[in-house]
Design a protein around this nucleic acid. Sequence first.
DNA 1: GAACATGTTGACGTATGCGTCAACTGAGTT
DNA 2: AACTCAGTTGACGCATACGTCAACATGTTC
Lengths: 131, 131
Amino acid sequence: MNRPESDNRDLFAIADLAKEFGISTRAIRFYESKGLLSPERVGATRIFRRRDRARLMLILRGKRLGFSLRDISDYLSLYDPRSQAAQVHLLVEMVDERLALLQQQMSDLNTTLAELSEIRKLASERLAQGN
Amino acid sequence: MNRPESDNRDLFAIADLAKEFGISTRAIRFYESKGLLSPERVGATRIFRRRDRARLMLILRGKRLGFSLRDISDYLSLYDPRSQAAQVHLLVEMVDERLALLQQQMSDLNTTLAELSEIRKLASERLAQGN
DNA sequence: GAACATGTTGACGTATGCGTCAACTGAGTT
DNA sequence: AACTCAGTTGACGCATACGTCAACATGTTC
């Protein structure tokens, strides 16, 4: 039951988050410039809270799923309690589309893997023949 | 047992393939310029054979899988009987990486779907309350 | 107090994958 | 001959998602 230190703190520097998630500080600033994040400031320095960190995690998951930052921006607005139900529906559709894409990809990947193992087999036979 | 007409022919114009696969002729020329295709020529006009068409199908599948054209180019060289076994191995690794990525994506997508249905639930409850 | 780490804001550059002209070349049609 | 259609080659443009400076401020350490 030991949590990572990051779950105990509530304040993070930009470099903390960059290191934790393996991204550049430049990327984080870029997300802010696109309105995906809005950390507090102390002077000019950004101060991130757990909320901001959670948003960043959502951003990164969206990216892993292949969504554009624009899409992710829409998606993040769903976490705003004032969000509209109609938009929820739109986003659900977007996610469903992605799901269909992923299923296609899985199918493509299976085909590809089969072909590669065939190629691998042929290659090793050729090797065994000393050709 | 009726095959599409395209499987009977051996010669295709660029527009035939573009139409068949739902891509632009510009894209096909672009692939050629990157060395992924090398159709014959009659004068300046490109003539595609079934081999070329098969390569194009591989290219498109690679794209669906998220590989870059550079990666796909390497991948296509595997279909060259003179290809090296070492490279087969590299490509198998690349595909394995993609597979891992896709599995991560599927996992991310499941999480996202769960969150969305939660949001959807909350939204509809709010609607029912007339809030 | 001089050096060093960390942070900030532009501005410009980069890679990928085409789209979009522009200008031109045959080939077949009326 | 004039047109139209399909095709060709550059050249330039564009969207996305940052990377890479430069130039500067601030805070900390030795």
